[in-house]
């Protein structure tokens, strides 16, 4: 092969992208296709030969269990997304000012980010279980007399335990992304607004917020995408019923009757599609809002 071949721009681009894109085609698109095809009734190893059929999807989508699970999953995902975005942005903006002990604070503000979600789960159990530390503190304060009087935060449909773990991990996540965006914006814009007579709130709303909005949208998008598909946290801290979509999916995946696997696959396809729709709608909404403000020049 001539040297010129490797100088060709298209060849350079193709060869450069090939390893990463190829790996992901095999490891990411492949499995998704397997899941999709099996959910459509093609699973010869389980002696399911009904491709293509929407029966498994219909079966899943029309069940009450699925609908309840979908509502619960959306709820557990959206509430922490909203709260984590609010708290994370507030934290980043507060932290961007002159603060004593910045390095020290920043270390702990990022700590939850670098540990597994399971660490958060263990903490929530230690603190909020009925025999946990908070219940003990309430007992010591004379507010409750037995573990039974402590409100059920874990393993209940309210999902407080699940959402607390998400918040523990995702406030720092939002914080770190917004902090990075803020450091690119610099304090001058807010200062300029102040010299023009804007109060602190006005400076935030009219100048800082529009500038950090892309970062806020990105982080909340990723947070929601994670929450919606998380398995281990709702499995460990949620109620047996209602369970979230991923928990229901894995339950069906693990039943001894392998011919029911396509049903599990229909579940994960549904999870992917719902999550995709929500994310897409969110982005569309943001774009429209951005355009309505005239767009960034």
């Amino acid at each position: 092969m001539s040297r010129n071949f490797f100088r060709d721009r298209r060849v350079v681009i193709f060869l450069g992208l090939a390893p990463a894109v190829g790996t992901l085609l095999f490891l990411f698109v492949g499995p998704l296709l397997v899941a999709l095809v099996q959910s459509l009734g093609h699973a010869p190893i389980y002696r399911v030969h009904r491709f293509p059929t929407l029966e498994f999807h219909r079966q899943v989508l029309f069940s009450t269990r699925f609908r309840i699970a979908a509502v619960v999953t959306l709820y557990y995902a959206l509430v922490p997304t909203f709260l984590a975005t609010l708290l994370g942005v507030a934290l980043a903006v507060t932290f961007s000012r002159r603060v004593r002990g910045k390095r020290f604070l920043s270390f702990f503000f990022r700590l939850p980010l670098v540990v597994p979600y399971l660490v958060g789960a263990a903490m929530v159990v230690a603190l909020f279980a009925n025999g946990g530390l908070i219940a003990r503190l309430l007992y010591a304060a004379g507010l409750i007399e037995s573990t039974g009087q402590f409100p059920r935060i874990l393993f209940s449909a309210g999902g407080w335990g699940i959402m607390l773990v998400y918040l523990f991990k995702q406030v720092p996540f939002t914080f770190i992304i917004v902090t990075a965006v803020l450091s690119g914006v610099g304090p001058e814009y807010e200062e300029a607004a102040r010299t023009l007579g804007a109060s602190r709130m006005q400076a935030f709303r009219f100048v800082l917020l529009p500038r950090i909005m892309p970062g806020v949208v990105t982080s909340s998008l990723l947070v929601f995408a994670f929450n919606f598909q998380s398995y281990e946290i709702p499995y460990l801290l949620g109620a047996t019923f209602p369970a979230t979509l991923p928990v229901e999916a894995l339950r069906r995946f693990n039943v001894p009757d392998l011919t029911r696997r396509p049903e599990a696959m229909a579940y994960v396809v549904a999870i992917t599609v719902i999550s995709g729709i929500v994310l897409f709608a969110y982005l569309r909404l943001y774009r429209r809002w951005e355009r309505s403000r005239g767009g960034v020049g």
């Binding site: 492949g30 099996q38 995408a225």
Partner: peptide, 13 residues
Amino acid sequence: PVIVPQIAVGMGM
């Protein structure tokens, strides 16, 4: 891959 549910990828995989 960061936003697509890992449970879907994982089962298919």
